[in-house]
Amino acid sequence: MASQGTKRSYEQMETDGERQNATEIRASVGKMIDGIGRFYIQMCTELKLSDYEGRLIQNSLTIERMVLSAFDERRNKYLEEHPSAGKDPKKTGGPIYKRVDRKWMRELVLYDKEEIRRIWRQANNGDDATAGLTHMMIWHSNLNDTTYQRTRALVRTGMDPRMCSLMQGSTLPRRSGAAGAAVKGVGTMVMELIRMIKRGINDRNFWRGENGRKTRSAYERMCNILKGKFQTAAQRAMMDQVRESRNPGNAEIEDLIFLARSALILRGSVAHKSCLPACVYGPAVASGYDFEKEGYSLVGIDPFKLLQNSQVYSLIRPNENPAHKSQLVWMACNSAAFEDLRVLSFIRGTKVSPRGKLSTRGVQIASNENMDAMESSTLELRSRYWAIRTRSGGNTNQQRASAGQISVQPAFSVQRNLPFDKPTIMAAFTGNTEGRTSDMRAEIIRMMEGAKPEEMSFQGRGVFELSDERAANPIVPSFDMSNEGSYFFGDNAEEYDN
């Protein structure tokens, strides 16, 4: 993207840094990872977990959730003011799984939030270390993106479920800051804005008074975040219109849905970061690795190297396929839920299948599930090659597409044709070009129609051997075009429920 120079890199967003050079960025990201790792080690000690239990991804998720809940100030305040039966607002906890007599047992633990905050700050040299908290939120978000298709949420806001490739980060909490905003897809931002506008339509006082002023500035800020994701002048001009509207209503909703559809071809720039579970960072720190000293990046080879040398386990339900569970977590670790499966298959070195073909449910185990038949197995999170994460949407291309997802959002900077089903997408653009945004709409449609099938995206960008740390010898991959490109292809993934 041309304006790259004016933006802070995501590592800076990730670490609240002012302008830093590459070495400083690597050190501050490393410091953040160190903090998460030290916190995780301490929690495993508190909970008396064995090494194996500490490497269980379900335990990692519970521990991450506990610290996120302990620092969720708004919710904590709300819980104190609106006490609900049987919930102690000062405590947080969740299921911890232990191996007892050759069987997995679930144990519900409860801790004072104050105590968890103390352990977290102690692991982070006394700081609140917001960057580390956001990092864990993005890992949870990436896992949700890989596990669930947001059909219901899309339909509720009037969008087409086939636009799911635009929904990265749709389950990120509001408090995820600049680093969170960077990884949100165009569809996620559109959905947040539509929800806001709908509230304004239904509630006369939404934009009024002292609160209304705050609401208005939040609305304009979200519009600017979305505008910054678009790469064409016409899309940005249309966002200006939406932002400046005196009284946002149905016309703005129409414009936003139009823009979301246009992003299936004229893709937005959305950041991709490899955020790993805390149970990967903990053992690495415990083994003596100093992330701050060595430096770390979320968008280069580092996460690949770390996963190459990590042992992570997962509980497996009786009829689940461990290899499929591994694929789910591998995609989440690489922030690749909406990437082209052919690119992923090449990088991973084994075939990556669409969601609907995987015999696996989510990673988390519900409290009512029976533990008797639970097994555990090693997650295979290694890769054959590594590639640089991208934040450009890439230019655009036609490809055989599917009944489910009709476009992709690249996660890796790797040369390819970008699949999208042009006739299906263009069919949504018939007729409606009147109104105050008509010239911009016409211009956007013209650009979409001009998108050429034979153009290559990320020209000359390749993948790298894991021994090639400096990215000196790019390998331009070859793809098996007979395979499906979309992950949520004609899909039956479970729906995400809060």
Rank of each mutant, 00 (worst) to 15 (best):
I265S: 11
V242A: 08
F479E: 00
G435T: 07
H135A: 10
F39Y: 13
S383Q: 15
K273M: 07
S287L: 01
Q12M: 05
S457W: 03
M105E: 08
Y52A: 15
F71W: 08
S262N: 11
V476Q: 02
T232C: 11
M481H: 05
Y296F: 12
T215Y: 02
I301K: 10
R8Q: 15
K91N: 08
G86K: 10
L264Y: 07
D421I: 11
E449R: 06
R355V: 09
F206A: 08
M137W: 03
G94T: 10
G435F: 10
M426S: 10
Q399R: 15
K214S: 06
M371Y: 03
T424L: 15
G462T: 06
C275S: 14
E484A: 10
D51P: 10
Q122M: 11
V299A: 05
T437E: 01
F39T: 08
S269Q: 10
K98N: 14
Y296E: 02
R246N: 13
G180E: 08
T396W: 12
E369A: 04
P173W: 01
G209K: 09
A27I: 04
P477M: 04
A323L: 14
T92S: 08
R199E: 09
L418C: 15
D290Y: 04
S310G: 13
K214C: 04
T151F: 05
M189L: 15
Q405I: 00
Y52P: 00
Q415L: 15
F346L: 15
R470Y: 00
G295P: 10
G460H: 12
L259V: 15
R99C: 11
N432K: 13
E449Q: 09
N124E: 11
M448I: 15
D88M: 06
P89Y: 08
E192N: 13
V408W: 02
S392C: 07
S482W: 00
T360D: 04
E449L: 13
R102P: 02
K91I: 02
M196Q: 13
E46D: 10
D112R: 12
Q20H: 01
R152P: 07
P318A: 12
R441I: 10
G362H: 08
V299E: 06
Q42T: 03
M447N: 03
S457H: 04
K214Q: 14
T396S: 15
Q149N: 04
S176W: 04
S413V: 07
G228Y: 04
V329D: 11
Q168W: 01
M374E: 02
G490E: 06
W207K: 01
V329C: 12
